[in-house]
Write a protein that binds this DNA or RNA. Sequence first.
DNA 1: TTACTCATGTAACAAGTTACATGATTTA
DNA 2: TAAATCATGTAACTTGTTACATGAGTAA
Lengths: 171, 171
Amino acid sequence: MTKSRAGLTELEGAILGVLVRAPSATAYRVRRVFQESRSAEWSGSAGAVYPAIRRLVTDRLIKERAEADARGTHTYDLTRAGKDAYERWLCDVTRAVGPGVDPFRTRAPLWAGLSPATQRKLAKDLKAELDEQREALTRTLNKLDAGDEITARLHIALLDLRLKWIDDQAR
Amino acid sequence: MTKSRAGLTELEGAILGVLVRAPSATAYRVRRVFQESRSAEWSGSAGAVYPAIRRLVTDRLIKERAEADARGTHTYDLTRAGKDAYERWLCDVTRAVGPGVDPFRTRAPLWAGLSPATQRKLAKDLKAELDEQREALTRTLNKLDAGDEITARLHIALLDLRLKWIDDQAR
DNA sequence: TTACTCATGTAACAAGTTACATGATTTA
DNA sequence: TAAATCATGTAACTTGTTACATGAGTAA
């Protein structure tokens, strides 16, 4: 029964976020949002989204409505309790500010152990990759909706931070 | 048998990193490094570390040596193949630059949907939390070894980036 | 009618989490 | 000798992944 767990997972919170911005969406549509958004940290895999939506229904955070449809289409909307849980998740400053899993920060202290030649090559490769991603993101910027643009701009700022850090290390 | 998987997980890579910096460490000592390092993204739980080390031994990336000891102490060191796999993991620019799971970026585009009053309160709470973490990190800075200091400085830069972003939004 | 998109889901697996359990060694 | 630390590990659970399977509706 998953009896009212402590809090929402990141995916559950993000699903509620999608449902707030796209009311009465199907699970399929929620998946698509994750799949299409280049910023999504999740693959939007069926094996994650369908079970997560099932949990949210079980916990009465969203309500399910069956469409008059032979393929069993269902749409979802937040309940009152769902809106409360969503806002709690969204305003959880401790979690919002937490570092999460950052592969760059995990590796950074270890790079010093590489040979100088390898370090130089790595710095070059990293800059190339960062520049490429920065350009790709910048190009899409004007094609994005407001929400995705915020995510993209934050991502660009992070890339810039890393570029600057690599330059500082080289000096 | 976990037959030579595609690549190392982040935890496996980080474990090799600990073993490089602290040769012939025990699994217990590796755990402690994760538990003590305030930057660690993992809890250093036994249920994660022991199985991961077992996998690394099975894949012959580390070799195990039994100490002459009644409590079954074992120490670990990288094999030649382990050093290669570690360097590949460490220099994997695609993964190093990847965004990982960032709770801040997940939430940022959704904050605009909150009421103006809630947004103002949230901005204040976020700044307070960011400031507090920044100060706490700064205080520890001179007590850290070189590796942890790099991680901490990267973390501080990230906190500053977010503080600046919040200020920019408010304007 | 063929192919694509919409729509739902399961199965096998991977890799973490917390909590529990056990015993040796060291230090106060 | 009592308590803390060192040391190893398992069990139950959570939540993600990829790959597979199925079928309805729509557009070429």
